[in-house]
Design a protein around this nucleic acid. Structure first.
Lengths: 231, 231
DNA sequence: ACTACAATTCAACACCAGTCAAACTAATAG
DNA sequence: CTATTAGTTTGACTGGTGTTGAATTGTAGT
């Protein structure tokens, strides 16, 4: 192994993690959003970003935001792998609820070592996704692509299987859980009211209505059409 | 709960832990031994001790060593509880070997919270001792007394059950494990050669000879004499 | 009582991660 | 094209934990 030994302390890892997640959409992560996510002031984040840039972990365009360097990505993915494996472990082995695991995983992700990571992976059966459905990076630092699509981007009538509930908000997760909307559940999109209106979805058991903000968090794998029907 | 919130960071907890363990014999912990245990220079430890004294966590007699205040003891015992519970968990649930768990427990002991501690305690069945036999402090911060005595302090011929292997030395633990000398095992003290010589002990399976340094680490609960034989 | 030595503390400094308040962009509105 | 403003950076400082090296203290030996 190599990309390891240089003072990768807690703070550094949390910054890289945050930057990675904020720039998943392709846009650089801004100082403000990073600061908010980490609970520090923008000035603090700004200083820290400069330090990370000095260490070649992020590429910094002043006043424009930060993106990770390949080095930074590698380290971030390792932390994210540990976070997500820990989440699986905390539910499978320790009996936590799916809305409780994020904070524990966050605390643990920077203190476990490779040996511990490997052990968790083995015990949990090398899962490919975390309990919320996020893909777990592989040990060698790659992130397998997935066919997930936003439920609300599908035409009404679409059915499929939920693959991910894309949030770490505790209350929302608990709510989704109560509704039975979690990875593995079958859903059908009934309708989307226009202009940010309510979204109606049904599971085999019930039909329910969600605000768009929540509905947008649902990622599904749509059913394959029965045959090779074109058009 | 109360004794909690004031910046009890990593370093503080590790110091209190170290001081507690070094002063278990009644003697104050010296600056040098603390420094050595924590891997810092004596000057660093000295400074830190003063700070801990300012916070009323240790009582400091300059040039003479440090002992914990009741406050400090309480916090130290909580950390030690977490450490030892983690050790049990790491073996029982995660399948680590008994000589591997100390370092992992050390890394984790300062980051888990009360909820996590309670969960581990529940999963492991509220054990009263760690895998090496050290007593686990109770949740309310008391340390139940135990009847352990040093094997080498017993007269030759004494039989009993090993209750504790009192070291965290990885190699030694591994060696003890290979010999089957671990808590729960029956042993009989055969002989102790004078002037720090070899100690011969036997288990139901075999007879073996240990250096005094190792033999001193074995704590047993001697068999009760068959009846109320006086003398 | 004096000396020698080890243990300890002190002084000065360094590093990291943060704060607040002030200065500075970059983009937008008029 | 300037004025405003939201977002960002800088400067000066703080708190926490360390280091090195010099000064100090305690203790044991003669």
């Amino acid at each position: 192994m190599d990309t390891e030994i240089r003072s990768l302390n807690d703070a550094t890892l949390h910054y890289l993690d945050a930057i990675y997640r904020l720039s998943e959409d392709g846009e650089p992560a801004t100082t403000n959003t990073i600061a908010e996510k980490l609970g520090v002031t923008p000035s603090g984040a700004s200083i820290m970003l400069k330090r990370l840039a000095d260490r070649k972990l992020v590429q910094l365009k002043p006043y424009k935001g930060a993106t990770l360097t390949p080095q930074g990505v590698k380290i971030a993915l390792r932390t994210i792998r540990r976070h997500r494996l820990l989440e699986v472990f905390l539910i499978q082995v320790m009996g936590f609820k799916w809305h409780e695991v994020d904070k524990h995983a966050h605390a643990l992700e920077t203190v476990i070592d490779q040996e511990f990571e490997d052990r968790i992976a083995a015990i949990t059966g090398n899962p490919s996704r975390c309990p919320h459905g996020h893909v777990i990076p592989t040990r060698d630092g790659t992130l397998p692509p997935v066919p997930d699509v936003k439920l609300v981007a599908c035409p009404p009538g679409t059915s499929g299987v939920i693959r991910c509930i894309d949030t770490d908000n505790v209350e929302w997760l608990e709510y989704f859980g109560q509704l039975g909307l979690m990875p593995g559940a079958r859903v059908t999109l009934k309708s989307i009211a226009p202009y940010g209106g309510a979204v109606t979805v049904s599971t085999p058991r019930e039909t329910m209505t969600l605000g768009l903000q929540l509905a947008e968090l649902i990622l599904i794998e749509p059913d394959k059409p029965a045959g090779p029907s074109s058009k």
